[in-house]
Simulated scan of single mutants.
Amino acid sequence: MTDVIFNKEEDVISPVNYAMDGPLCFYDVLADYFVQVPESGKPVLDMIVQLWSQSFASHIFSLLFHKWMFEVHLDNPEVLLRYSSALVQGATNVFWIDIQTNTRRFQSIFRYLLDDVALDHTRLNKIPLQAQRDMYLLLSRFILFYNSAGKVDSFLKQCPVFQTAFLVGGPADIFVNELTDQLQKLKVEPVLLHYLSEIKVLQGTTSTIQVWN
């Protein structure tokens, strides 16, 4: 596993091992390792499953297995739905930790779910439709917080059509509903101001014309 962290020829951390948004955290390293060597994650996954009823289990699952979920093949539909639901729930919880502390410690997870899953249907289609819907709702709430306003157009264009009684309207309508609900929940003033500033950035884009008219 040290090959993930250290250069094979030098006992130093390689520049490629820094995340796009800053130094790698432990969960970034382990998430990549469990993709490269899937069997190595089985003992950890078994332990998480045993603790499934604990509120923190989904947090740990989302941190360590958010990439593994989309790179391995799971035959059991019930297991796939359970893992997908845990991923969305855990990601929701850790993103709220960032909001409550006005930090972005978990930004790399958000960027992966946005860039490599939501905007890449080859991965998105590996999880059940219900989980796909929940993933888009989740990303709609946090896309402005994680400084991704410039990707809203692509995000809305890639959003599948979800035919349910709870989601009325197109992707832009759903995005506005989720964003409005998120704004009402924000209690940290700097975070609220950040959301409002990001909404201003949206003005003039195609998505904004559709969303706010």
Score class of each variant (00 low, 15 high):
1 M>H: 08
1 M>A: 10
3 D>N: 08
4 V>W: 02
5 I>Q: 09
7 N>I: 01
7 N>V: 00
7 N>Q: 07
8 K>S: 10
8 K>C: 06
10 E>Q: 12
15 P>G: 02
16 V>P: 04
17 N>C: 10
19 A>T: 11
21 D>Y: 10
22 G>A: 03
22 G>K: 03
24 L>P: 05
27 Y>L: 05
27 Y>F: 15
36 Q>Y: 13
37 V>Q: 12
41 G>P: 06
43 P>G: 02
45 L>R: 10
50 Q>K: 13
50 Q>H: 06
50 Q>G: 06
50 Q>W: 00
53 S>V: 09
54 Q>T: 05
60 I>N: 08
62 S>C: 06
65 F>I: 00
67 K>L: 07
68 W>Q: 04
73 H>T: 15
74 L>N: 02
74 L>P: 00
74 L>M: 07
75 D>N: 15
75 D>Q: 15
76 N>C: 09
76 N>Y: 01
77 P>W: 03
78 E>G: 04
79 V>Y: 08
79 V>N: 06
80 L>N: 04
85 S>C: 02
85 S>D: 07
86 A>H: 04
86 A>P: 01
89 Q>D: 15
93 N>W: 05
93 N>S: 15
94 V>H: 08
95 F>P: 06
96 W>G: 00
98 D>H: 07
99 I>M: 15
99 I>H: 11
99 I>E: 13
101 T>R: 13
104 R>V: 08
105 R>N: 13
106 F>H: 15
106 F>N: 13
106 F>L: 05
107 Q>R: 13
107 Q>N: 10
109 I>L: 13
111 R>P: 03
111 R>L: 15
111 R>E: 12
115 D>S: 09
116 D>Q: 14
120 D>L: 01
120 D>G: 00
124 L>T: 00
126 K>Y: 02
128 P>H: 02
131 A>N: 03
135 M>D: 02
136 Y>R: 04
136 Y>E: 03
136 Y>A: 04
138 L>T: 02
140 S>P: 01
141 R>A: 02
142 F>G: 02
148 S>N: 07
150 G>V: 11
154 S>K: 14
155 F>Y: 15
155 F>C: 05
156 L>Q: 08
157 K>S: 14
159 C>G: 06
159 C>I: 08
163 Q>M: 07
164 T>N: 03
164 T>K: 01
165 A>C: 05
165 A>I: 09
166 F>Y: 07
166 F>N: 08
169 G>I: 01
170 G>P: 05
170 G>F: 06
171 P>M: 12
171 P>C: 13
174 I>C: 14
174 I>G: 10
175 F>C: 04
175 F>M: 07
176 V>K: 12
176 V>G: 02
177 N>C: 09
177 N>Y: 11
177 N>L: 10
181 D>L: 14
181 D>R: 14
181 D>Y: 12
182 Q>I: 08
182 Q>A: 14
183 L>I: 14
185 K>H: 12
188 V>H: 11
190 P>T: 03
194 H>R: 10
194 H>C: 04
194 H>W: 08
195 Y>E: 10
196 L>E: 14
196 L>K: 10
197 S>W: 05
203 Q>G: 06
209 I>Q: 11
209 I>K: 11
211 V>Y: 04
211 V>N: 11
